[in-house]
Simulated assay, not measured.
Amino acid sequence: MDETIINSLTSLVDFNQDELIIFMKRLKLRKVIKNEFILKPGDICKTMVIIKYGGLRYFTITEKGEQSHWFAFEGEWLGDYESFLIRQPSQNFIQALEDTELYCLSYDDMQELYAYGAKFERFGRLIAENLFISIGRSRNELASLSAEQRYINLIKTYPNISKRIQIQHIATYLGIHPQSLSRIRRNISSPKT
């Protein structure tokens, strides 16, 4: 079994070895190349994914341009949870930021896992809660924090993000232009006197 995935699963719920085997049998391995989309507007999100290695971004396109809502990397789950649950078309994109290997969990497989008992149901609830918190935090930060503070929070969460993805994607997450992000990065790296 894959250690990254096992660590991610057991960080939420204390699955025993047999339960991990049951869970892992439901996950389907998929490889995506850099810039490939795993979800586009109009598609129904058929799977939630957990990343073995690589990175994804979740974003929308509005009249103002692209708006990245969050990023996910090794050991993290991602999907359009609303579309996944209600089986309705998404309005969002999910795109690989780099060559990525991930495991997919379908809606039907998730429902089958719930039938195995409380630990699996708890896992589903915790994933939903974490996604809800991530969305809320992203919205609140965009509305209440400066771009510089949002960038500082982002690099605290993902210290190597600027080495892994394009600056323009980080800028769209912060709601600023890449040139503004370059100034913020210079200000942060230069000691203040």
Rank of each mutant, 00 (worst) to 15 (best):
residue 110 M to S: 08
residue 93 F to T: 01
residue 13 V to I: 14
residue 142 L to D: 12
residue 102 L to I: 07
residue 33 I to K: 11
residue 29 L to D: 02
residue 104 C to Y: 05
residue 193 T to M: 08
residue 147 A to C: 11
residue 39 L to T: 00
residue 10 T to Q: 05
residue 123 F to N: 09
residue 136 G to I: 12
residue 13 V to R: 04
residue 85 L to F: 01
residue 159 P to Y: 10
residue 97 L to S: 03
residue 58 Y to S: 06
residue 24 M to T: 02
residue 185 R to C: 14
residue 156 K to T: 15
residue 87 R to L: 06
residue 4 T to S: 12
residue 143 A to L: 14
residue 52 K to N: 06
residue 81 Y to E: 00
residue 52 K to Q: 05
residue 165 I to M: 13
residue 183 R to V: 12
residue 103 Y to D: 00
residue 83 S to I: 01
residue 43 D to R: 05
residue 89 P to M: 05
residue 51 I to K: 02
residue 137 R to E: 15
residue 154 L to C: 10
residue 79 G to P: 05
residue 139 R to S: 14
residue 13 V to D: 03
residue 186 R to Y: 13
residue 30 R to C: 07
residue 95 Q to S: 07
residue 12 L to V: 04
residue 143 A to D: 11
residue 179 Q to S: 14
residue 173 Y to Q: 10
residue 121 E to G: 14
residue 86 I to D: 00
residue 29 L to Y: 08
residue 153 N to S: 14
residue 92 N to P: 05
residue 154 L to E: 13
residue 61 I to C: 07
residue 171 A to S: 13
residue 33 I to F: 09
residue 154 L to M: 12
residue 31 K to M: 12
residue 23 F to R: 02
residue 17 Q to N: 12
residue 41 P to Y: 03
residue 186 R to N: 11
residue 145 L to T: 06
residue 33 I to T: 01
residue 76 E to W: 06
residue 166 Q to D: 14
residue 170 I to L: 14
residue 136 G to E: 15
residue 20 L to Q: 02
residue 106 S to C: 08
residue 105 L to G: 01
residue 135 I to L: 13
residue 156 K to H: 14
residue 1 M to K: 06
residue 187 N to I: 08
residue 16 N to H: 04
residue 61 I to V: 09
residue 69 H to W: 02
residue 125 R to C: 15
residue 91 Q to H: 07
residue 52 K to T: 01
residue 101 E to D: 03
residue 143 A to H: 09
residue 148 E to P: 11
residue 59 F to V: 00
residue 7 N to C: 10
residue 182 S to Q: 04
residue 60 T to A: 12
residue 171 A to G: 10
residue 166 Q to W: 08
residue 146 S to P: 09
residue 3 E to Y: 01
residue 105 L to P: 02
residue 144 S to H: 14
residue 121 E to Y: 10
residue 59 F to M: 04
residue 30 R to Q: 13
residue 169 H to S: 12
residue 157 T to P: 12
residue 4 T to N: 11
residue 1 M to I: 08
residue 189 S to A: 15
residue 172 T to S: 15
residue 50 I to R: 01
residue 31 K to Q: 09
residue 169 H to F: 15
residue 18 D to H: 02
residue 121 E to S: 14
residue 111 Q to E: 11
residue 166 Q to F: 12
residue 80 D to L: 04
residue 90 S to A: 00
residue 77 W to C: 04
residue 189 S to C: 14
residue 148 E to V: 14
residue 28 K to D: 03
residue 116 Y to H: 13
residue 12 L to A: 05
residue 52 K to Y: 04
residue 102 L to R: 09
residue 98 E to Y: 02
residue 179 Q to F: 07
